[in-house]
Write a protein that binds this DNA or RNA. Sequence first.
RNA 1: GGCGGGUUGCCCGAGCGGCCAAUGGGAGGGGACUGUAAAUCCCCCGGCUCUGCCUUCGAAGGUUCAAAUCCUUCACCCGCCA
Length: 430
Amino acid sequence: MNPNVATQSKALIEDFKWRGLFSQSTDEAALIQSLAKPTTLYIGFDPTAPSLHVGNLVVLLALRRFQLAGHIPIALVGGATGLIGDPSGKSEERSLNTTDVVAAWVDRIRVQVSKYLDFNAKDNAAIVANNLDWTSPLSAIEFLRDVGKHFSVNQMLSKDSVSSRLEAGGISYTEFSYQVLQSFDFLELYRRYNCTLQLGGSDQWGNITAGLDLIRRIESGSGHALTIPLLAKADGSKFGKTAGGAIWLDPEMTSPYAFFQYWLNTDDKDVINFLKVFSFKSREEIEALEKSHAENPGAREAHRALARELTSLVHSADICERVEAAARALFGQGELSELDEATLASALAELPRTTVKNGEPIPTWVDLLAATGVVDSKSAARRIVKEGGAYLNNEKISGEDFAPSKSDFLCGKYAVLRKGKRDLAAVELL
RNA sequence: GGCGGGUUGCCCGAGCGGCCAAUGGGAGGGGACUGUAAAUCCCCCGGCUCUGCCUUCGAAGGUUCAAAUCCUUCACCCGCCA
């Protein structure tokens, strides 16, 4: 057993509070006491997309924090619950995904989640579970008799996730049942692994406490709930979303370059909070960054630290270095034409691109812009040009009919297209 | 099963036979100012072979010179009744 666990338990909770990761918990003193020895805890992730996104990272990293503190983390992938749909935090009924789709997503998410946990830890190796394993063998009759009997509809109706939906227009029996399934998960994990703590976003409180009730009723056992506030941005907009949609952890869905840029462009007002929530830096380190940020916000040291740590964690240190070097080259004060070919090539490798065959006529740059995907359509490309927001090799050029000539290709090979301040793309002459 | 309401562009939401690519708000985008930040101001925001043309208002048919707007059927959502 990790000898530090006992002394760490109070510090762990204090650290969560300081980081803004503590929304509410069941009896806090009792929780701290139970954490004095290695505790098995879990968080569930429902497969609602082919990848997790940065929003999921908040709780996933919280699970990691617990493991680092000596506890045993279970990442539960919701192969069953993902088929049902959690009404928590949703204002309307969701359409169901097919079982094939959900199964495929489960596989991908299991792999993703595993990346943040340690499965080789000596005393507290992580566990990944899928709630389909214990849900699918259960017959409807068994479920209703053995599990359903312990639930009072009155109580179920009073849960926020249900009552708000009743007011907002309605809820299906399917989604209404979600809390029962999640409770059953907690019960099963309690039985199988003596899992006594469930973490979740603050909208999960009702589901988690329902599970605790079930454990008490059936097994006369006790456990704890700890919820984490939903991450809010200073300007009120939704965290983790951009024009292009969510910021995904999957590099195929959000390129590491875009991922790094997302963090680098964090609002000043949010950056310290984000460091607390996402970073594994110590309080001292973060406070030092806070100080330097306050003194010279333009240097964006805190932003850079945030972007680096997360890109390294989610992708890799190597990839992080590459995309950062690319950004440095492309955003640098220096002339693009002064970059050597190798630097240029590796920087551009991180960007969306299109190619032109040597010898063939070079299309107008409206066509090129559209082809790289930095704009959605040729109309959009025209619009940008008209508005003076299009650049070739960092030079603003107007005129929709403009077509780059060979001499515009740096090192004879590459042209850098830019939309607005920071949306870059490459054209490669083959 | 019956009765009633609904389905409009990324989201919310007007329009209720021609003046509709469709009012307004939000989100988003560009410019200026800056620090690849925020705030602010100006502009834009279906597509294309772009002074015009094409495709959109849940789906498919129909009425009409003309439909997002009227009719029919279908799908989905919501409410109420038993």
